[in-house]
Nucleic acid binder design. Structure first.
Lengths: 193, 193
DNA sequence: TCAAGATTAGGACGAGCGTCCTAATCTGTC
DNA sequence: GACAGATTAGGACGCTCGTCCTAATCTTGA
């Protein structure tokens, strides 16, 4: 198999395992077993475990970019923000089992005092900036960033609690509450210009 | 040193290390080094690593009970809930570095598929029930539990985001927003009886 | 004082970890 | 068809893990 194809398959499986079992708890043997290659073959593609983590974070950054761009088709900013909130519903099964992939990875890397922590947190940065753009478009130029962080925090809180409670009704109730908050948010048309 | 005193010291250090480095990443050698005893001596006090985890969870359950009881001195239910919210301010340094001890432990144990996950989640249960009692006292009998979970989720979200952002200003802003939400919550005096 | 039990230190154990090396196999080019 | 380089499998490495064992030391009560 070609170098790039194998690399990609390793990244896919590593991504899933880091999410479902955690970075520390996932061994080379686990990834190799999932991919179906030998342990030794690994170092032809990645020179260390941290190297795989970097690739996984790159992957997630790219996937996030693609996701955000796909929502640009929603004309109204509020609908775009709603698309973000709705991830919780779309991915509810995985979130109930393993939490949010972004939040849980940054949390784990923070405890491990891992150099890649800040890069993992950049995924939050993408969501943050994109959400802030939407709130700006709603006329909330001054507090766009604060509103973006508020939505992120609310979403993270729901993810943490639903993975602890394993309660889908709670998830749906809190998502509805967050959407209601968004609906109540006044749309300010620019007074100047 | 007496058996109980050494046990207690082990529990204290294990508790701190599980919080700051994670359960999986903390080894017996780490705990032994922190306590100042030999590795081998461990098994006179705890028969396995899971056994220490159980003791740490017991410790946290008891500490949570004590904390909740200490807030019973606040006469008004809203002040009691405010005491809960203010943990985020009080423990801000540790939360910024390591997240919430309850949320991060349950998240890690969920990924590890560890038997103790449900016991760790019981700590959330204590906060949940206590908060629900306070909302009931405010006259929100029907949605007391939902309101309790809402406050828990908001707090968890703040903890996750602040540990990713390392931004105390964000923490304070979100705590203020949550307190403002609490202030706006109508106090309903019972209509029957 | 001395026996009995509690507590301790230190190391052995098998297994698994991340890493690295070597040799075999595959793939594509002249 | 043969050679060169890419790709692979498999195992060795040094280390650390959780666990367990044994022997030494301390504490306590008769």
């Amino acid at each position: 198999m070609s170098r790039s194809a194998t690399r990609k398959r390793i990244e896919e499986k590593a991504d899933a395992l880091f999410y479902e079992a955690g970075f520390e708890a996932t061994s080379f043997a686990d990834i190799a077993g999932a991919v179906g290659i030998s342990r030794g073959n690994f170092y032809h593609h990645f020179k260390s475990k941290d190297d795989i983590l970097d690739a996984v974070i790159d992957r997630r950054l790219a996937a996030t970019q693609t996701l955000l761009e796909s929502w640009e088709t929603d004309a109204a900013p509020k609908d775009r923000i709603r698309s973000f909130i709705r991830i919780l519903i779309t991915n509810r099964t995985k979130i109930m089992a393993f939490g949010c992939p972004v939040g849980t990875l940054t949390t784990e890397l923070a405890k491990l005092d891992h150099i890649a922590e800040s890069r993992a947190a950049e995924i939050f940065g993408l969501f943050r900036d994109w959400l802030a753009d939407q709130f700006s478009a709603l006329g909330h130029k001054d507090d766009a960033d604060a509103l973006a962080l508020h939505v992120l925090a609310r979403s993270q809180g729901i993810a943490v609690m639903v993975s602890a409670l394993k309660d889908e009704a709670f998830l749906r109730a809190e998502v509805s509450a967050l959407e209601a908050w968004l609906d109540r948010l006044p749309v300010q048309t620019s007074t100047k210009d």
